[in-house]
Structure formats: C-alpha cells, structure tokens
C-alpha cells in the first residue's frame, strides 16, 4: 500500500476513535444551561464593560437570574435594556434616572498656567505621578486626555483649551473616565442637574488665585445665596449636593471667580426639600 493511503486510513481511524470518545464524554458531562441566562445575556449590550459591578455581561445575566442584580443595573443599556430585562424576568420595570459624566475643572491652558514642562508619555496618570504634573494647579485637570481615550462611546473630546468636554447624548455613565482620572475630576451626575461647581482645588484662596483664574476661593457667597442649602464649603472648596440642588442658578450669578457653571436646556427642578 502506498504511504498516502496508509496515512489517510491511520489518521482517519485515529480521528474517528477520538470523535467517538468525545461524543460519549459529551453525553456524560452534559450541562444544562439555564435558558433564562441566555436570553438575558442577549438583551444586554454585550460589551463587558463591568460598569454594573459584575465581571461582564454574562455574570450580570446570571446575577439577574439569581435575583442578585437589579433589572436596571446596567448603566450602559439604560432605560431600554432595563425594560427588556424586566420583561424577560417578568417584573415591573423601574426606570432609573439617567446619569452623565461632568468634568469638575474649568482651568484649561488659558486659565491655569503651566509651572513646568512635562516631557514623557502623554498620559495623565503618568504626568500626575511625575511631580504632580506640569500644571500650576495640582488639583485640576492635567489635560493629556486620558479620560477621552478611556471613553468607549465617543462621549468625550478635548477642546482647544485642553479640557475634556462631555457629549451628554452619548454618555452612558459607564464610569470609565471617572476611574481613570488620577485627580478625580470626572463625576457621574443625574442628567437633569445643570449647575456645577467646576473646581476640585483644596488649596487656600491665595494659592488658588495664584495658579488659576477660575478656581474656587471658598468665599462662601454661594453657600449663603443657596435657597435650599445645597452648597457647603469644606476644605477650601465649595461642593454641591446634587440631591438638594434645584438648578435655580442663583449661585452662578454671585460667584466672583466664575467657577460655577450653568448648562443650558436644564430647567429648574422641583424637589421635595429634605427636612
């Protein structure tokens, strides 16, 4: 017999033997897969970003099936996914208020001068570790755009002033930019909130004035002006309590530095005052 024939027969026979063995084994080790998990997984976005707190969409689907996760737990899919999931699970859909990222720094290149030149990889995390970056303010945005790179939904871009801007329509509140920022500039806020204190500086007023023309100097005017006690000044920085803020914009007008920002198209919200 020629080598070709022998080769074909022997390899074919080997393959057949293993195939039979595996077929028997697959019968023996057969695992029932919960069809509920399968259908839930299909309803999810399937990008495995982990924003829900589970290790990927599959784990989240299993959590849903076991009742460990809430149907509206996927921030990326938003209301539509929550509805689809609730329908599969046969529970009432609870629409969660959509959140978007906000950049809490207004001091770009124009407002906050550099105190040194940073030469190295243009990554905020690296710049931050290198003598706290080159910017005058050691609390503000470094401006390398690491958050923009981290965004998987085209919801962020750097402007000419080397500050990130959020395209709120695209933002899914996945939190990637929040986690990646070494200075915690980005935060996730209810999309209805339109008034933001865009500063993170904990430095004293004098130091803040020296390094930035739009930094919070903790003058407390906004705190006094606020009708719903939503603003408090602690550690040389005014902070806004978004649970209380009603978008009245009175603080925006009194701020001497222009730190407080108002967004258009976000009207006054009626809220029950926390007692």
């Amino acid at each position: 017999m020629s080598t070709t024939v022998i080769s074909l027969i022997s390899m074919g026979a080997l393959g057949a033997v293993f195939a039979v063995g595996l077929a028997i084994a697959s019968k023996k080790f057969h695992v029932e897969v919960d069809p509920l998990v399968e259908s839930l997984e299909e309803a999810l976005p399937g990008i495995n970003c982990g924003a829900c707190g589970f290790a990927g969409c599959r784990a989240f689907a299993e959590g849903l099936a076991q009742g460990k996760a809430a149907p509206d737990g996927c921030p990326v899919g938003g209301v539509e996914t929550a509805k689809a999931v609730a329908e599969i699970l046969g529970v009432e859909a609870t629409a969660k208020q959509r959140r978007v990222a906000q950049v809490l720094c207004k001091g770009g290149e124009e407002q906050s001068a550099s105190r040194a030149e940073f030469v190295g990889p243009q990554d905020c995390r690296i710049a931050h570790l290198t003598q706290s970056g080159s910017k005058g303010c050691i609390y503000g945005c470094i401006g390398c755009g690491t958050c923009v790179e981290s965004c998987r939904f085209d919801a962020m871009a750097m402007n000419d002033n080397r500050l990130p801007v959020v395209y709120e329509d695209n933002c899914t509140a996945c939190g990637a930019c929040v986690r990646v920022c070494p200075r915690n500039i980005n935060v996730l806020v209810d999309e209805r909130q339109g008034v933001h204190i865009r500063c993170r500086s904990l430095a004293k007023a004098k130091q803040t004035r020296q390094v930035c023309s739009v930094g919070c100097i903790a003058c407390r005017r906004c705190e006094k002006e606020c009708p719903v006690d939503a603003i408090t000044v602690t550690d040389n920085l005014a902070r806004i309590d978004y649970d209380k803020c009603i978008n009245c914009r009175r603080c925006v007008k009194v701020c001497p530095m222009g730190t407080i920002d108002e967004q258009e198209g976000k009207p006054v919200i009626k809220k029950q005052r926390a007692s």
Binding site: M11, L14, G15, F18, G21, L22, A25, S26, F29, H30, V31
Partner: peptide
C-alpha cells in the same frame, strides 16, 4: 505533529467538558 495535535486537542476537549460539569 498532526497525530499529536489530534491527541492534545481531544484531551483538552475532554478536560473542558469535565470542568464545565
């Protein structure tokens, strides 16, 4: 090479099924 790969692949399949169970 072909024969050995066949053996290895089959064994891995077996382990995979076993572990999944």
């Amino acid at each position: 090479t072909v024969a050995f790969i066949l053996v290895i692949a089959s064994m891995v399949q077996l382990v995979e099924m076993f572990l999944n169970k």
